[in-house]
Design a protein around this nucleic acid. Sequence first.
DNA 1: ACACTAAAACTTGTATACTAGTCAACGAAA
DNA 2: TTTCGTTGACTAGTATACAAGTTTTAGTGT
Lengths: 226, 226
Amino acid sequence: MAAQATLDRTTSSDHVFDELYAKIVRLELLPGTKISETEVAKSFGYSRQPVREAFTRLANLNLLLVRPQRATVVRPFSRQLIANARFIRTAVELEVIRAASTDRDPSIDAPLKSNMRRQGKAITSEDASAFHDLDYEFHRLLCESAQQTFAFEIIAANKAQVDRLCMLALTSKEAMKTLHLDHQKLLEALFAGDAQTAEKTLRAHLDRLTPTVDAIYTTHNAYFDG
Amino acid sequence: MAAQATLDRTTSSDHVFDELYAKIVRLELLPGTKISETEVAKSFGYSRQPVREAFTRLANLNLLLVRPQRATVVRPFSRQLIANARFIRTAVELEVIRAASTDRDPSIDAPLKSNMRRQGKAITSEDASAFHDLDYEFHRLLCESAQQTFAFEIIAANKAQVDRLCMLALTSKEAMKTLHLDHQKLLEALFAGDAQTAEKTLRAHLDRLTPTVDAIYTTHNAYFDG
DNA sequence: ACACTAAAACTTGTATACTAGTCAACGAAA
DNA sequence: TTTCGTTGACTAGTATACAAGTTTTAGTGT
């Protein structure tokens, strides 16, 4: 997640944003945790103002819940918000796939294939963290291949809502293999220009999250709202 | 454009945001216009801080260009940004249409039909402004019908980029008729559960902007960047 | 011990002051 | 006349102080 696209200089606010974003997504800050502008400011050695801006941006991503005169909290998981985020992500990524299958940038083919190989290695070494990073990169490369790089910003923003939840799901070797196979099928359809198969594969791929979310809803109900 | 969804109370920042948003979209503030936090603050009778927050939010919508130690300007039109926004909007609205054609909320059918009738009236009385409002409402109702109300936030955010540009295009009676016909075909396909036709119609509908943008690019080149 | 009240200790929103950096205008030198 | 450099009036980013409101806690009366 880039701090601010339009600027080269990174401000104090950017720093705070990046740190908090990482902590929230990695569940170092658990859903429901109270978090105070003043305290964060002290811990960073900044004033409240830059922290406040970072808070606002995180609230826009639905990662914080800021209410006037009340303690700001790390937003609990919300099945509604997760569903909404997935809807948007699916919509955008489907359109990306469509664009890529009719007119893709061939110079991205090699990075995509390389990424696939590394996914395979991550699976054999059962390195879930590496696999996650490669998955992130894979979907970014898809956007590049479709020459719609900016679209990944939307996808990433909506992934965040789910990513932190997935930290609670233990990633089995089988699960990774399934995802890897999805990627494989997707790429094949893409390279063949078969938009319909690519779409169907992507939709199935993204739908795999549903049972995971449901499972975590029962095992970690305390982290959910309502 | 709602000020802030999560809060009931409207803050000074919300007020400034709403006012500036309206002025920018209505081209009362032209692309390229310098705009100062201090001056805006004085004109509203607020301090700089709420204005600053409003600026940040407008910058996130790509309506302002904020750079450190430089004058903030109303963002010039950018064909790249417009294309990006349209990509996202198309993606989301296509998925909305798909959702609506397989499982729509029938209680929205009546409002949709009523909206269509009023579109017809606006055309016969050649009231372009009313037609524009009804068009906005129409697409919002589509989201409601698909039970994905939140999706309209994304659509609206990306519409903004184009809406202010369309203020420069004189809306002829014929153009309005064409759009109205699109809406008609879209609804018919939707009510018939014909997702494919609905998709095709929507895509054609949104593509109609292309020649308009190109025309304005030549007639009002000064408002564009690069 | 329990219920209710009041005050103190938090919270975010806003106002103001200061800092560092950019830009434009003006003047001097070539 | 043209070009370069300096100066001063801007800009946004940050720090700090205050205001308004919520929550918790302590204390008092029963």
